[in-house]
Deep mutational scan, measured.
Amino acid sequence: ETFPLDVLVNTAAEDLPRGVDPSRKENFLSDEDFKAVFGMTRSAFANLPLWKQQNLKKEKGLF
């Protein structure tokens, strides 16, 4: 299941849709939104070091 970017960005855990893991908001973006937000594919993002993934998520309001 995916959700629009505005539902996930800068949203407190208690305000997220049911079933969304607040530590993994990026997994609930569509592939198109994911690429638009991070400028890379999911596989490229997954290959980044964890610290870099976290920094990007913070920068984009998805942490």
Rank of each mutant, 00 (worst) to 15 (best):
R18E: 13
N55A: 14
V37R: 01
W51K: 08
A46P: 00
S43F: 12
N27G: 06
R24P: 03
R24T: 08
N10V: 07
L62C: 11
D15M: 10
V7W: 12
S23H: 15
G39Q: 09
L50Q: 12
F3L: 13
E1A: 14
N10D: 09
A13L: 14
L48G: 00
A13W: 11
K35R: 13
V9S: 07
E32N: 09
G19V: 12
L8Y: 02
N27K: 15
N10H: 10
L5Q: 05
K57A: 06
G61A: 02
S23M: 15
F34G: 00
Q54H: 10
V7S: 09
R42A: 04
Q54W: 11
A13F: 12
E59D: 10
F3H: 08
A36E: 13
D33K: 04
D31P: 07
F34W: 02
T11C: 12
V7N: 06
L29A: 01
F63L: 15
Q53N: 00
A36C: 11
E26L: 05
A46Q: 12
N10T: 09
E32D: 13
G39D: 09
R42I: 04
E26W: 01
F38E: 00
E59W: 06
R24Y: 12
P17G: 06
F34D: 00
N47H: 13
P22Y: 02
T41V: 07
K57I: 09
N27V: 12
F28I: 03
L8V: 04
W51M: 08
R24E: 06
A44T: 09
F63I: 14
T41S: 13
N27Y: 10
T41E: 13
D33Q: 06
D31Y: 02
L16Q: 03
T41H: 07
N55E: 15
D33P: 00
F38A: 00
P49Y: 01
L48Q: 02
T11P: 06
A44Y: 08
P49R: 01
A44M: 12
L8E: 04
P17T: 05
N27D: 15
L50E: 11
G61D: 05
V7E: 08
S43Y: 12
R42N: 02
F28R: 04
V20M: 06
D6E: 14
Q53A: 02
D15K: 12
A12K: 14
T41K: 05
N10A: 09
Q54P: 00
V9N: 07
L48H: 01
